[in-house]
Write a protein that binds this DNA or RNA. Structure first.
Lengths: 201, 201
DNA sequence: TATTATTCGTACCAGTCGGTAACAAAGAGC
DNA sequence: GCTCTTTGTTACCGACTGGTACGAATAATA
């Protein structure tokens, strides 16, 4: 499915690079909170007129949704890859801790978590996608814990569903703290402490 | 210091009840996010004209700061009371867990945490007060842990500063989750799990 | 009664928001 | 040439924001 000019085009050739605009939107939404970035600002940053942007993305909601999709494809996929890596409990948790507290991409936080935190401010499309990604993330955390249980690496008293939620929220907390300029070493220490409950006998 | 009409008053008698307006503002900021409540909305809720409100509170920032002060006095004080209660580690943690996951006042979250989460959107007065309260809360958590250490109730490997931060953030996380409609029982379970790191030998 | 002081609310300000109508520009097909 | 289609931009819309100028209202004081 190559969607780069499948049509020979009939009318005036377009000069707007939609991918570039989307990249700029992702960067802006990601650095600042999505609620603090206006369509006007993105147009100015991208050097594109507002009607052009609206012709491409339909609405602010459409643009945010596209930005979230792009972000999920390029960044969140790494988290899913860590969880499905098939490594053991200890290694996977360490990889998660590294990602949350040391990955330079998380220096200004996570776009997904920023959107989730301000869910009520989102349009219907973007909100639905956020909830979908949230469910997918929970499922990934849970299946990871399930494989650990089968390997006998998990404390017996810990149930999978709540454990997955706990794990996900601790990672989210750590990344959110990075967005607010917290010291990475301190974040790592706290996240390590939080996840130590999984490594107990 | 009774500041209810210390002056016999000279001009037109005031009909506006500033305390009532403040209560309404606190309730509105508390239920919804402060960033989502406009001065206009508060005026409408309180049945007060905008200039009246501005004469009393100076600016939106002043109103928010007054609302936060009122909230701290009426609600946050309870948390400080729990921490300074002089009870042991286990009882105090249980009280914190009860407060965060079961107190009906926290059903729509905590105004202080909502403001802290959107700190960059606040005016200078309110932001300064948020940071001040944050420092005070951290100090309270730390002095609580210190007293537990002196009683030998704390794991030896746990340092006080990071431990206090961890404790505070876990409570904040739990209350924030309540604001987003999470199941209280699930929140209690997760917070209990998170705080179990303090009860280990 | 006239003055002065204080509070009241209407009606406005400039700015920003998301979104669009309307027209100009530029190519392809006839 | 002309038309048709698509993209581009300017300039606007109504709604809302925080904030205020200003005159009417209401009291104590002179």
């Amino acid at each position: 499915m190559n969607d780069t000019d499948p049509k020979p085009a009939r009318g005036r050739p377009k000069t707007m690079d939609a991918d570039k605009v989307l990249d700029i939107a992702v960067a802006a939404y990601w650095r600042d909170d999505p609620a603090d970035v206006s369509v006007n600002a993105i147009c100015q940053l991208a050097g594109v007129s507002k009607p052009s942007l609206y012709r491409e993305f339909g609405s602010e909601d459409g643009l945010m949704r596209a930005a979230l999709d792009s972000y999920a494809e390029r960044v969140l996929s790494d988290v899913f890859a860590i969880l499905h890596g098939g490594r053991g409990l200890k290694d996977t948790l360490e990889a998660l801790i590294d990602f949350a507290s040391a990955d330079p991409r998380m220096e200004t936080g996570c776009l997904f978590y920023k959107m989730r935190a301000g869910k009520h401010r989102l349009g219907p499309e973007t909100r639905a996608r956020v909830e979908e990604l949230d469910r997918a993330a929970h499922a990934a955390y849970e299946s990871f814990l399930e494989s650990c249980r089968e390997a006998g690496e998990l404390p017996v008293g810990l149930s999978l569903g709540p454990g997955a939620k706990y794990l996900g929220e601790q990672v989210a907390l750590a990344i959110t703290q990075r967005a607010s300029g917290e010291d990475p070493a301190s974040i790592r220490e706290m996240l390590t402490l939080a996840l130590s409950v999984f490594a107990r006998p």
